[in-house]
Computed example of a mutant assay.
Amino acid sequence: MRSAHFLLPVAIMLSSTACMSTYRMPAGMPSASLRVPPGVTTWICANGPAQILPRGKDGRARIPAGERISVGANFASSDGYMNYYCSAGVSLQPEKDAGYYQDFETEGNRCAAIVYRETDDERVGLTFEPTLERSGPGCSR
């Protein structure tokens, strides 16, 4: 019975991305780097439907630069009594060769996606990136 508490959120998360294809960065396109959070399924909308955004072993994904995109994450968990599922995203226009950090926060039954720009500041290393809020994995603009 205990495994059911773990498997149900995983099944929910997988079913929410089951119809998504995996994003492939077009050859020759200018790109930026996005460090994505562990434990979530990250997605991207870049001139098309939502697609799963694959990350490398270093936890980073390549994203297109110079155009507005949406990035987000799906999260599922269980505390043994309740199952939680949340999807949130933001829209941004990455700059070529810049580094970004995507954060995903949950509180109660609400969640939010936030993107920071990585900087050379030795104290903090991050700065807020202007983004537009998205409510889910939809790609409408």
Rank of each mutant, 00 (worst) to 15 (best):
S21Q: 06
T106M: 01
I52C: 00
T42R: 13
L126V: 13
E95T: 01
V40C: 06
R123H: 11
M13H: 07
L92S: 03
L7C: 00
P64E: 07
C86I: 01
G136L: 06
A73P: 05
S78L: 04
P137A: 11
D58Q: 06
S77M: 11
Y101T: 07
S70F: 13
E107H: 02
A65T: 05
E122N: 04
C45L: 09
L53C: 04
S78W: 02
S3G: 00
V36H: 00
F6W: 10
Y81L: 13
P94C: 03
V124M: 04
S15M: 11
E67M: 15
E122W: 15
G59A: 05
S16R: 11
R55T: 11
A46Q: 09
T42C: 15
R117K: 15
Y85C: 00
E133V: 12
I63D: 07
E118Q: 15
V124A: 01
D121H: 01
N109F: 14
T119S: 10
I44Y: 05
I69V: 14
S16I: 01
S21H: 04
R62T: 06
P137Q: 12
A32R: 05
P137N: 15
V40R: 08
C45K: 12
E118Y: 07
Y81N: 13
R110A: 07
Y85Q: 04
S91N: 09
E129F: 06
P64C: 05
G99R: 11
M20T: 02
V90F: 08
P9S: 00
T41N: 10
G125K: 09
A32N: 05
L34D: 01
L92R: 06
G66H: 04
D120L: 07
S87I: 14
L126G: 01
P30D: 08
R62N: 08
D120S: 07
N83Y: 14
R55N: 10
